[in-house]
Design a binder for these strands. Structure first.
Lengths: 146, 146
DNA sequence: CTACATGCAAAGTGTTTGCTAGAAA
DNA sequence: TTTCTAGCAAACACTTTGCATGTAG
């Protein structure tokens, strides 16, 4: 899975006459390892632990590159910065459950909701290009009672 | 409707030993007039047309005040800044259709979707505090074909 | 009169960009 | 050896804050 993603990235770079550098390899590996939903800042700090020489800008630029390659997708979950999700890990569209306590993000997919969204859009004469459903709350592990 | 909102705001201010100033009155009136989904910057520029002496900071601070009073809710629609919606204008929860072309934001409410969200959350042991569904696309007026 | 509010400008965020040395192909 | 990339710092855009003056209560 990781392999195919990295392969895809290499192909993309080659196709654009871009270069696969150590830094880019590091960044994409860490990105995949954490399974996405990570911010540029977090990714930067994680990589810095083992490779302090890395710079912000490289992380930001590589994330942009991943997004351009269709491998990452930036999304604002309301905590002040963009989090990137790993597109090739989950097939198709998905929505999010976000824990207010621990920050965990769970993906889910409910075809019925998707259909209803389409219906609502049609009612209003909208042509959907994209949609996002975020459910904020408290996850099982963070629930005080149980 | 406007009246009750402004009344609510006055009550809130009094309760907090805060003051109802001309600026605050102007800001909340303009906010209500535009029916929300407005950014601080837009609100600031609108008010500046008639009252150039107004400052950014006052607009930002007043919006924060409105949010604290439960009358406004900041939300990021992905265009780089926070837009505030007018809480008392629409009763209950609602979701959004956002036009990629003209930026128009249409509110809607689909009880079935709401129920399904609740079900999904329960499946994952989540206790919902809030949720937001944004459908991006092209609205009827901006559709090229028809 | 006594807080609180205003407007200004300065500081803070997260993110992007320009530049020059350096490395991939 | 040519072109793209890295790291740094400066620039950016939106938002928040500190301060002295002004004003509601």
């Amino acid at each position: 899975m990781n392999q195919s993603l990295i392969q895809h990235f290499e192909d993309y770079l080659r196709g654009q006459q871009l270069r696969l550098t150590d830094q880019r390899r590091l960044i994409i590996n860490e990105f995949v390892r954490t399974q996405g939903h990570i911010s540029a800042e977090e990714l930067y700090r994680n990589i810095q632990k083992t490779t302090p020489s890395i710079g912000f800008a490289t992380v930001y630029r590589t994330l942009k590159l991943l997004a351009d390659a269709g491998l990452a997708l930036g999304k604002n979950f309301g905590d002040g910065f963009v989090r990137f999700e790993c597109c090739s890990l989950t097939v198709g569209h998905h929505d999010h459950l976000i824990c207010n306590r621990c920050g965990k993000i769970i993906e889910f997919n409910n075809p019925t909701i998707e259909e209803l969204q389409l219906a609502v859009a049609q009612e209003h004469g909208f042509i959907i290009s994209d949609h996002s459903l975020d459910i904020h709350g408290v996850c099982q592990e963070c629930t005080p009672g149980e």
